[in-house]
Nucleic acid binder design. Structure first.
Lengths: 109, 109
DNA sequence: CTACTATATTCCAATATTGGAATATGTCAA
DNA sequence: TTGACATATTCCAATATTGGAATATAGTAG
């Protein structure tokens, strides 16, 4: 598997670039306990295979770590601190954009 | 345009989820000066329309800001501090993964 | 105006991502 | 062993993203 640096970084960013995967990461960040596939499927009201596949994508780039406990496969964030940095930065950008847009709407009134 | 919060965040992450766009952001972060489309096209040895389209994607989510100066459209990062946070966090994850993989390779020797 | 340069946009084919259903695998208990 | 449950994987159709060529637009100089 040959891959240059930007490709490797992009794989990580891409893994976060989906609403459900981002939501899963935020959820795991707040909950702080490993959660199993079924729990996440119920929580997000999604098909089990969909959740499983998204977790697999997150696992491939080591955003998430799998711990097998008997029947259950429990997932946690591998790097919670880094994920928090990213989510906070994204939130900051989104909030600033919302603020800017509301100002533009005001100007157009 | 109705969009829930995770959709909005995902749009920002998606904008970064491409090797060239990530490279453009890192470049603008280091250079600190606004750069025009042609400059970036030459620097990255890419088609002008490709660069223009990628910049447009970054601009749509306000990762990048356009300043028109005569003939030139110069682009800068709108939120350099946040972009640096994100890039640093991604680098940290990628480095840790590389380290882990090299250890796995060692184990297999 | 025309010519020239910079940039944006449109069009299109190739490729990638997605969700859901079905199926396969794995783990445990009886 | 069989059954029950948790999870992963495969398959497929719908959708999204991509790069490059061609075209359109914009700004400036002559």
């Amino acid at each position: 598997m040959k891959m240059d640096m930007f490709e490797a970084k992009t794989q990580v960013v891409k893994a976060l670039a989906h609403p459900l995967r981002l939501a899963i990461c935020e959820y795991l960040l707040n909950i702080k306990e490993p959660k199993c596939v079924n729990h996440l499927a119920n929580h997000f009201k999604k098909n089990q295979s969909v959740i499983s596949k998204h977790l697999s994508i997150l696992q491939q780039v080591n955003i998430v770590t799998l711990k097998k406990e008997g029947i259950y496969n429990r997932y946690t964030l591998s790097n919670p601190a880094q994920i928090r940095c990213i989510i906070d930065a994204i939130n900051s950008i989104v909030k600033e954009n919302a603020l800017k847009n509301s100002k533009i709407v005001e100007m157009m009134d």
